[in-house]
Design a protein around this nucleic acid. Structure first.
Lengths: 130, 130, 130, 130
DNA sequence: GTGGTCTAGACCACA
DNA sequence: GTGGTCTAGACCACT
């Protein structure tokens, strides 16, 4: 019924999901989020789990709470942008290191990616290139 | 004392560690592994934890057990090679998809990797660089 | 105190017991299983032993785990049915082969079974007779 | 390298193997058995393992030892025959009970066996039917 | 000395 | 209250 992986806490998967939507632009700064109950119902999980996810998102600075009104995506654009860039850099770094462990140098990876490029051209949905 | 990350089960970290040694060639098919007690002592963890890691490695097909003799790296070279190639492909695929979510196309990633290439040249130890 | 045979690991006997209950219809797909602690108490064994049995049942696909909720019989009816049919076929096959080794042909076995049939008539509880 | 199952002691598998050869007529009462060393070499196992298997076979009455001469299949034909008949009866009994657990009555099994009969006709190698 | 099993009991994250 | 993990330590069968 759920699409969650069982090896990771559900609340962290929710955190990641919301965070990704913010970073990708599916959710914009200032947007109102679903209520705990709505999201819990939609995802078929315990409301406590969503509550915990929101607490974590607030702790990390991605959302803010207005009591008796609702939760909103943070409007601190600078924070969001810096976080995103750092995350991209980290992801690439980890990737390069893992490939190196398998004996693949950046050059080899580039060759692979170049082959793949055509396939993905046009598939990207939320990016307009140059 | 331990060098383990606290966010993942130790036994799974041991599994990954041994698996990586096999895939990278630090351990060869047929090689005898440390005994449960030896590895437990070396890593300062409970023998049961190592036992569990070995059970998992055996379940996945990376090692075989000979009762009262020891454990050995699987000699199924084909399985190991296929697994490795699949793993590399998956890693790249996931990476490309994650980058796409951030709005970076393969082209952009290649540009980034090209910049990085110089830094890593000469650092890779087990790859034949022309 | 226990009704376990001493020549086989307890955890495997638990695995077989639960599996048989699923295949025979004593447990239905989606049913919640006893908790580890409950079953351990009922069978007078250590919770870890039950834990291990459940891990094995999950690995084989007969049950699924929901963290902090409980374990449930798999709802993959097709898997369960195929497994059952395969198991019946295997059991018969092995039996026939063993009999053949003793020099008994299917014909001889049929003769024996025919004699036995009367004795078992009416004893079967979960089969629709005639 | 070995054809032994890893979940059962090797020495018991050797016991079963020799016992089966005796019961099936591959080995006859009075036949001399391989020496411990020969069999150990042939099966690529530790001589101690074969030694233990022979001790067990002697304990059960299937073979006798003549010091400094060798081991021989027991010439107690009556014992061998009674054992064989008992074993056949037990095997059938267990089989019928297992089938009953799956809801298959002897009648159903007979139907299945009747279908199989043709296939096995002529395959039996060491039995001549009346 | 090796792996296999089991017990006893603890702490934690999660729902 | 549930399952997940880990420790500590024991006994056993097997090679």
């Amino acid at each position: 019924m759920n699409t969650f992986q069982s090896d990771k806490p559900i609340y962290l998967q929710v955190v990641e999901d919301v965070k990704m939507k913010i970073l990708c632009g599916d959710l914009h700064p200032g947007d109102k989020l679903e209520s705990v109950r709505e999201m819990a119902a939609r995802l078929s999980v315990n409301p406590n789990t969503i509550q915990r996810a929101f607490l974590e998102l607030e702790r990390q600075g991605f959302i803010v709470t207005q009591r008796a009104v609702g939760r909103f995506v943070s409007e601190d654009n600078q924070f969001l942008e810096i976080y995103k860039q750092q995350r991209i850099r980290d992801t690439i770094q980890q990737f390069v290191e893992e490939m190196a462990r398998y004996g693949m140098k950046p050059k080899d990876v580039i060759a692979y990616l170049t082959e793949q490029e055509d396939k993905y051209e046009g598939v990207n949905n939320n990016t307009e290139s140059e």
